[in-house]
């Protein structure tokens, strides 16, 4: 059974050819700018005039909009509603439901929060859509991030769909022994131990065997690792990264000065 293991979409675009670290720096810059609170509309402007154009530049606009609509809008919408109703301050009541007042202040705060979250997740989405996870990890390892850490991250990415398949088999096996897992809440709660027990034990066996397998592949050899994947890094990109970092420093400086 083939399952999609990451967000990555294999296309030939300017963004795809950028060094992963350049993209990561750009994303961090956008996120920091959105959260610093320099301007109320800044997250919205970043989303509309930087992130959306980037999705076209990376030739992943369709996937980007799909993921945004399916994944993000419900979450952002939920946040918006929560903030709009439950923000404590505010005097200019627009309308009330039961004991909750929606005020101009709460509404504007809700919009700000939602637009920030949207901008943050959308920037990372662009990174993940245009960057092969192996490239990101190889590049970070090359720059001194621990090999163990990047192994844990890439293997976790892959293990989630496998766990789902396994959980499915375990549920089938327990139902076949007469366990009701659907229907009322009581049934569902009762089904937790028979599901989680084998899942945890199975994972322990799997972790031990996998540890043997990667050890057999010289994972802990005391040598400097090399990488099969070639990751480009041009002088212009290094310059761009310094510019991003400059922007971040200036923005933080402005924020402190404006306070």
């Amino acid at each position: 059974m083939h399952q999609k293991l990451s967000f990555y979409v294999d296309r030939d675009s300017f963004l795809h050819h950028l060094n992963p670290l350049t993209k990561l720096t750009l994303v961090l810059t956008l996120v920091i700018l959105s959260f610093l609170g320099l301007s109320y509309w800044l997250p919205t402007i970043i989303f509309l005039f930087i992130i959306i154009p980037l999705s076209f530049l990376g030739k992943v606009a369709q996937e980007f909009f799909n993921a945004t609509v399916k994944l993000l809008l419900p979450v952002v919408g939920f946040l918006f509603v929560m903030q709009a109703f439950f923000h404590p301050d505010g005097t200019q009541v627009i309308f009330s439901i039961w004991i909750f007042d929606v005020t101009v202040e709460s509404l504007s705060f809700a919009y700000l929060t939602a637009s920030r979250i949207l901008t943050m997740v959308a920037s990372f989405l662009i990174l993940l859509l245009t960057t092969h996870p192996s490239d990101l990890m190889s590049d970070l390892t090359r720059r001194g991030v621990s090999g163990n850490l990047s192994y844990v991250i890439t293997s976790t990415l892959q293990i989630i769909p496998q766990m789902q398949v396994k959980a499915g088999t375990i549920i089938d096996a327990q139902q076949s022994r007469g366990l009701e897992t659907t229907g009322n809440v009581f049934n569902r709660v009762k089904a937790v131990v028979p599901l989680v027990g084998p899942l945890v034990f199975g994972s322990l066996v799997e972790v031990e065997e996998r540890a043997i397998a990667i050890e057999a592949r010289a994972f802990t050899a005391p040598l400097k690792k090399t990488s099969l994947r070639e990751i480009p890094d041009r002088a212009a990109e290094r310059a761009a990264r310094w510019i991003f970092i400059g922007v971040i420093i200036i923005a933080i400086g402005l924020r402190i000065w404006l306070l």
């Binding site: 375990i170 096996a173 076949s176 022994r177 009701e180 659907t182 084998p198 034990f201 199975g202």
Partner: peptide
């Protein structure tokens, strides 16, 4: 009928015991 109900009529022995013992 649910799988759980059918278990009284059809017992199904899965291949991998580790995917059910708890």
């Amino acid at each position: 009928h649910s799988v759980a109900e059918l278990a009284s009529r059809v017992g199904y022995v899965f291949q991998n015991p580790d995917e059910q013992l708890f």
